[in-house]
Design a protein around this nucleic acid. Structure first.
Lengths: 192, 192
DNA sequence: TACCGCATGTAAACGGTTACATGATTAC
DNA sequence: GTAATCATGTAACCGTTTACATGCGGTA
């Protein structure tokens, strides 16, 4: 099954919040399963195994009384370094939404500047796409078919909404209240 | 690999608009490459080969003068039937955004009722997700970490925007002007 | 000369899902 | 008694991307 790649970093990030079992990881993500496609156990467990092999996590088997025994994974120092390196490299210009969201979920592990950079990077990408959609929308001379027109409108509506959210959030980050929390959050977990 | 979005059906749908080569298909999709992940040639060409084997499309090799020869694919009657069956079955409740968008792009091949049903089905799914996000947002007692809060807000903003667009579009469909166009569009291509 | 756009194609690797197996405990 | 939740794991399969190969014509 080769080596799972991107999901491994994400798991690493989740483990910085607290040591967890594979089952826990899946459960903690379920509320966001519309945004992120929650990985199946068939990819989750093997990923944990390879992380363990690579020394990026450690296990502790906790024999639950009257429950099945659970394997609690904790991130190691080596794992923190790998995670840090991954978080610092910017998302590829044509990356999927998921790549953006994984880092957003782990936002607590970014410095204030890191979070701002992440949101601004996304902002640039969405703005570019919005522009591209607008251009194709104006350049199509009415004769284009219904489906394409609807889809273009859909894309524009979502891009605009996302830009609004990004601007809102970036604005809040400029205010002291949220900034303070960013500082607290990142110092509590992983200082970048 | 994500969820099987069945690129074959989508290609079939695009070919109803006009006969095209594999290269054309890719080019025609490029303007939407933010919404749909445009399939690579490595999946596009083999898909066309299997469609040809199954008799759902036909080829005509057009030797371009001073250009490389092009293979123009046309959908067959059998292909139309397969496409029709696919378009009529509703999208799975946990399907990806791509599954919704593929059918939206091919909206011209849906009857007026089919398009409305498609949008209403999506509406129900997004509304359900919005509700779920709101519930987790209210049930988290302030102590939840920054990343999760941001992601929740992001999801809610996008879900709300999508619901607005869906309601807008459904409202327009109720008006005669657009409805007439749906009728024209579907009769011109594939009567469902 | 070298590279880009056009145009088609193939093989290997990849990153995942599905389906299955196991087994204990609680709830209807 | 049987279904559901908890909990871990494996193997087969799947659709797709990546990287490569080919070749022609225009352009910097």
């Amino acid at each position: 099954m080769a080596k799972p790649a991107s999901i491994r970093h994400f798991i690493l990030g989740l483990l910085t919040q607290e040591p967890m079992s594979g089952y826990d990881i899946k459960r903690s993500l379920n509320s966001l399963n519309w945004l992120i496609e929650v990985p199946s156990f068939g990819s989750l467990y093997p990923a944990l195994h390879t992380l363990l092999e690579d020394g990026l996590v450690t296990v502790e088997v906790v024999p639950g009384q009257d429950r099945p025994p659970r394997k609690i994974y904790s991130i190691t120092e080596a794992g923190r370094q790998v995670l840090q390196a991954w978080m610092q490299q910017p998302v590829a210009p044509n990356a999927s939404l998921k790549a953006f969201l994984m880092r957003l979920i782990l936002a607590g592990h970014l410095s204030g500047d890191g979070l701002r950079a992440h949101l601004e990077g996304r902002r640039a990408q969405v703005a570019a796409q919005q522009l591209a959609l607008e251009q194709t929308a104006t350049s199509m001379n009415g004769s284009t078919n219904l489906g394409e027109r609807l889809t273009l409108g859909y894309g524009l509506a979502l891009a605009t909404a996302e830009l609004n959210w990004l601007d809102d959030t970036l604005g809040q980050l400029a205010q002291p209240s949220l900034s303070a929390e960013v500082a607290r959050s990142s110092s509590a977990a992983l200082v970048v």
